[in-house]
Amino acid sequence: MDFFISHYNYWIVIFLMMVGLYTVINRGNLIKKIIGLNIFQVSVFFLYISMGAVKDGAAPIITEGVKLYSNPLPHVLILTAIVVGVATTALGLALVVRIKESYGTIEEDEIHEMDHSL
């Protein structure tokens, strides 16, 4: 039971990661694919933050009388990753808008049909 509780976070992370991966592979709609990528991304954030968490640790802001802090390094990495993530998501969505304007659809198989690819 202890093992289950101490690894529960990682298993949920893997579940979320796989949900995101499944959406990217299986769904043909481009907006849905981007949502899937975002779910994948959030799961990676949780992996990092879970690794940095310390039991009974305080948030990493130095306060008098507190001895144990969480690991600040994953927080720094993920903080910047979130903002970079939204910028790249916006880039992906901009591409979706341009695809819609040129092809008239955002369904993957219809685009393949128009291009005679696949």
Partner: peptide, 17 residues
């Protein structure tokens, strides 16, 4: 997913200082 779960078995538990 199963390969990744196998990988987590060696990770130290959540909140391990």
């Amino acid at each position: 997913g199963m390969v990744l779960v196998y990988g987590t078995l060696d990770i130290p538990g959540f909140g391990d200082p």
